[in-house]
Design a binder for these strands. Sequence first.
DNA 1: CGGCCGTTTGAATTTGGTCAAATCTCGTGG
DNA 2: CCACGAGATTTGACCAAATTCAAACGGCCG
Lengths: 244, 244
Amino acid sequence: MCATPLSRQEVACDHCGMFGLCEEAGLSRDMALLERVVHRRTALARRATLFHAGDPFRCLYAVKSGALAAVSGGGQGDGKILGFYFPGDILGLDALESDRYPTTVMALEKSVICRLEYGSVPLLGAHQAGFYQQLIRAMSRQLMAERWTSLLLGTQSTEQRMAAFVLFLSLQLKRRGLPYLEFRMPMTRRDIGDYLGMAMETVSRAISALQKRGFVVLQGRNTKISNLEGLREMAAITSQLPDQ
Amino acid sequence: MCATPLSRQEVACDHCGMFGLCEEAGLSRDMALLERVVHRRTALARRATLFHAGDPFRCLYAVKSGALAAVSGGGQGDGKILGFYFPGDILGLDALESDRYPTTVMALEKSVICRLEYGSVPLLGAHQAGFYQQLIRAMSRQLMAERWTSLLLGTQSTEQRMAAFVLFLSLQLKRRGLPYLEFRMPMTRRDIGDYLGMAMETVSRAISALQKRGFVVLQGRNTKISNLEGLREMAAITSQLPDQ
DNA sequence: CGGCCGTTTGAATTTGGTCAAATCTCGTGG
DNA sequence: CCACGAGATTTGACCAAATTCAAACGGCCG
C-alpha cells in the first residue's frame, strides 16, 4: 500500500524518452508507418539480458516499466554495474558511434520495453529531422546522467555515496512525476555495491547509518525518505549539479 | 626528443571532433558562411576557465590543442574533476538539454579551441542534416568516454585505478594517431587524484608501485609505458570495454 | 514447513587518507 | 646565465575507514 513500486509504474508514451516520438509529430495518426520502426511493449523477465557487450548495434530501446542495469564484461555476477535505467530512459545510445553495444544490459526485474530499429529511421521521411532533434536531447540527458554517476562515485565517504544514491533514485522518480519520497528500490544490495564501488556489507552498514540519523526508513527494498534536507546536506555533492 | 607532448599536438581539422564539419560538406569552399558559425582557433591560458557551471548554453567548443578538465562546483581547487578533454574532443554536449552548462571547464595548460554558435546552426541550411548526424556520433563517442570514467572509478585498488588511467590516456592518444607509449601527462597529481577519487599522495604511491613492477617509467609528467600487456592485466577492467 | 537467497551485524585485517617534512622542477627576475 | 622561490612531487608515520571473513537472521517461494 505504502510505496508506489518503481517496478510496476509504467511511463505514458508522452513522458517516454523515446523522443515523445510515438505520440508526437502526427505519427500516432500513421500507425502503419510507426509500427515499421517501433516495436512496442516487449516483456523482459528478471535477470534476462537485452543485449550483450560486443553485440552489433541494431536497435535503440526505451524502458516502459521496470528497471535495468548496464554491466561491464560478459554478463552476470562478476562485472561492475555502470548504470541503472528506469522508465523513460533510452538504451543503446552509446552504441551509435562504434556500431556495437559497449555493455551488457540486464533486467533487474520484470520490465517492458519498446524497440526502435535504428536503420529504419529513414522510413520516417519528413519526420526524420524531428526525430534527430529528439535524439540529441535524449543523448544530452544521458550525458548528464553519466555525469551524476561520476560524481556519485567520486564522493568521499561511503555514507555520503549512499545518501547521494538515494537522492539519485528519488530524482529519477520526481522527474517522471512519480512519488519520490516513498518508493521501492528494484536492485539488490550487491547491485548497489557494484554500482557505487563498495562491498555489499558496506552498503548495508551505510544504510543503517542513514537510518540512525533519521534521514531514511528502509525495510528491505521499501524506501522512505524522512528527511530530504538532511540527505541533501550529507550528500553535499548533489547540489553541485542542477537538479534535473 | 622523447615523448611527443600531448600538450603541443594539434589535431588537424579533419580529425577534429567538430564533426569534420569545417573541412567537410563543401563548407571549406564557403568560408564566409562557415565563419558566421564557427570561430576558429581561440587561445586559452593555463588554468583559465572556458565557462562556469550554470552559465547559459550558447556554444559548443572543439579542442584543437592542449588539454582541459570539467570540474564540478564553482571552479578552482575544491571541486571534483569529472573528465578530461583532449584535442578532437567536443565540449558542452551535456548542456544541450538543460540550456545550461552543468560543469565548469578549465584549461590544464595553454590550449587552443574552436567555438561553434549553436544558435547559428540553421544558417548552415542544407548542411544542417549532416551536422546533426555528426553531432550524434560525437555525443555517442562522449557517452563511451563517460562509461570509461565510471569503470575507472569503480575499480578496486588504487594501483589498478592508476594502471587503468594510464591506459586511458594512452588510448586517447592512439585513437588520434599520436604516439601512445611515450607521452606527457598534462595534469598534476592532484588533478589525477580529484579525477580518480584518491588523495594526491596516493596517486604518487600508486605510480611508484607501477614503476617497481616495471610497467611504466614516469619522470614528473613524462610517461613511458614499458609493459603494455602487464598494465592491461593489472587493470583487468580495461578489457571490459572495447578499445575505442 | 523447509530451504534458499538476500540482508544484517560482528571482529580482525588491510587499505588508503591525513599530517608532516624533504626533495624536486620550472619559470622568473636579477 | 644563474640564483631564487613557489608550487609540485615524493616519502614516511600514524590513524580512520572500508574490505574481508564469518555467522546469524529474515523473508519469500516452492
